[in-house]
């Protein structure tokens, strides 16, 4: 087979010059320096504005006397698609049903919010919160005390003025 030679055309200087492109890029940069609707957020000094329907890590509501509102009905571990809630029910000294163990594995959680939706006593909520960093992995299993300590706002799972998203 005879060797064939393909002749390549050298591009024009006008096409290869970077000067025009550099100027274009710098123009964009300088434009953003004076752009009034910039999107960069100086986190953590500036905090983002989260949607009221944001679904973050959980929070357990408490009664005025400090007891958890949870009655250990078992609906959240049943509905949970990620199977991340562990619940052991029992009875306290006043004869109320309450959770002896209530743990949520926030690593397994997919933040679907169904636990909040299914809760008959509005005890467990997903929260408007995202700063969850920890130094060890086991800290991501939130126990009952930890869930009761959380003080971030809780989610509105739907817009009250438009509950069906119509």
């Amino acid at each position: 087979m005879a060797a064939t030679v393909k002749v390549m055309r050298r591009p024009d200087p006008g096409e290869t010059s970077y000067i025009r492109a550099t100027l274009k890029g710098m123009a964009l940069t300088f434009k953003h320096m004076v752009n009034p609707d910039k999107v960069t957020l100086q986190y953590p000094e500036e905090q983002p504005d989260l949607s009221p329907r944001w679904r973050g890590t959980h929070r357990m509501e408490v009664h005025a006397d400090g007891r958890p509102k949870c009655v250990a009905c078992g609906l959240c571990p049943t509905i949970c698609p990620a199977n991340c809630i562990r619940l052991v029910g029992g009875e306290d000294d006043q004869g109320n049903r309450y959770p002896i163990v209530y743990e949520i594995d926030e690593f397994r959680c997919i933040f679907c919010g169904m636990c909040q939706e299914v809760c008959p006593v509005e005890a467990i909520h997903v929260g408007v919160h995202f700063e969850n960093a920890e130094y060890t992995r086991d800290r991501f299993v939130y126990d009952l005390d930890r869930l009761m300590e959380q003080d971030h706002p809780t989610t509105l799972l739907w817009d009250p003025s438009d509950p069906r998203s119509e």
Partner: peptide, 8 residues
């Protein structure tokens, strides 16, 4: 009281 009833 289905949430706290054992028969639920």
């Amino acid at each position: 009281d289905c949430p706290i009833c054992d028969q639920s």
